Simulated scan of single mutants.
Amino acid sequence: LSEYATERLMKGWTSPIYAFYNPTFRIGYEGGRRYHAFQCAAKGCKKEVRRFLNGSNATSTSNLIKHARKCFGKDTVERAKEYGTAATARDELASELNDYKPATITASFKRQSDKGAVSYMHRQHTKTETRCLIVRWCAKHGRPFKIVKDEEFLILMKTGRPTHYVPSPATVSRDVRQAFVNCRRRVAALLQNYDGKLSFESDCWTSPNHHPFMAVVVHFEHKGQPLTMLLDAIILPKVRSLNLPHV
């Protein structure tokens, strides 16, 4: 395309989402199809979002929005929409867009492949996001709540950003309890409204220190996938031996 045609084409791209990409674009071909390629503006990100021109999505911004949310965060993308145009959003968010660098904190635990790849974001977490991730970390891996006060942990979290928020052990404890209450409520609603068969199972055992335990689990199918949930694990007050007759 000529410089005039390119400039005229870009004048029609006024959506604020273009603020998260370099002002210029590249034209390429793949399998005989022409596309426009937009380079992400985040420092260190080499992602190039392609938009093919031979279909109904020739002017779609859905893939641009999807990647921008991954790099800059949903809140920043939503805030850009308030500015109305790409030019205004680029000016208002200039300091944020220019300062973004690849982060070293996991932004999402969603698995991208069977190999366990984890995605990262280009901004620090908010206070709420930090609290949520620490709750998940402690619950999933059995970490003690007071780990957030470990000197080495604080060095990792605050080096280069000394004002970064880290919750106290008391806050982590309260958040874990609240997360458990919410999770229990959702599981109860799921099982009570389940339109199908539920298979319950119990298992009893004695720990090495001679404490008897019993666990109750439920098996069912959810969205085509088999699921198993631990409903409860309790210490039994008494243990009785039961001799069953041979059948």
Rank of each mutant, 00 (worst) to 15 (best):
Y4F: 07
E7T: 08
R8G: 09
R8F: 06
M10S: 11
M10K: 15
K11R: 14
K11M: 10
G12V: 01
W13L: 10
T14N: 11
S15W: 02
I17A: 01
A19G: 01
I27C: 09
Y29F: 08
E30C: 08
G31P: 01
G32E: 09
Q39G: 09
C40L: 05
C40Q: 02
A42N: 05
A42K: 00
K43W: 04
K43A: 13
G44C: 05
K47S: 09
R50S: 01
R51M: 10
L53C: 04
S56L: 13
N57G: 11
N57Q: 12
N57Y: 06
T59R: 13
T61P: 06
T61L: 05
S62C: 11
S62F: 03
S62E: 12
I65S: 06
H67F: 04
C71N: 06
C71Q: 07
K74Q: 13
D75T: 12
T76I: 14
E78S: 14
E78M: 14
A80G: 05
A86K: 00
A86I: 01
A87Q: 15
T88Y: 08
T88F: 07
A89T: 03
R90F: 02
R90C: 03
R90V: 01
D91M: 14
E92R: 15
A94M: 11
S95E: 15
L97S: 03
N98F: 10
N98D: 14
D99K: 15
Y100H: 14
K101D: 07
P102G: 07
A103E: 11
I105R: 12
I105M: 12
F109L: 14
K110F: 01
R111N: 10
Q112F: 03
Y120L: 15
H125K: 13
H125G: 11
T126F: 02
K127V: 02
T128I: 09
T128P: 00
T128K: 14
T130P: 07
R131A: 07
C132T: 13
C132A: 15
L133A: 06
L133Y: 08
W137H: 05
P144D: 02
V148N: 00
L154N: 00
L154K: 00
I155V: 10
M157L: 06
M157Y: 01
K158C: 04
G160K: 00
P162F: 00
T163L: 02
H164E: 02
Y165S: 02
A170F: 03
T171E: 09
R174H: 06
V176E: 05
A179F: 05
A179N: 09
A179L: 06
F180V: 04
C183A: 13
R184Q: 14
R186K: 15
L190M: 11
N193D: 14
N193E: 13
Y194L: 04
D195N: 14
L198Y: 08
S199L: 12
E201A: 13
C204E: 11
W205D: 04
S207F: 06
P208W: 00
P208R: 02
P208L: 02
N209K: 11
H211R: 15
P212I: 01
V216Y: 03
H219M: 01
F220D: 03
F220E: 03
Q225A: 12
P226H: 02
L230H: 09
L230N: 11
D232L: 07
D232R: 11
A233L: 11
A233G: 07
I234A: 13
P237E: 01
P237S: 05
V239H: 05
R240G: 05
S241R: 14
L242Q: 12
N243V: 09
P245M: 06
H246G: 06
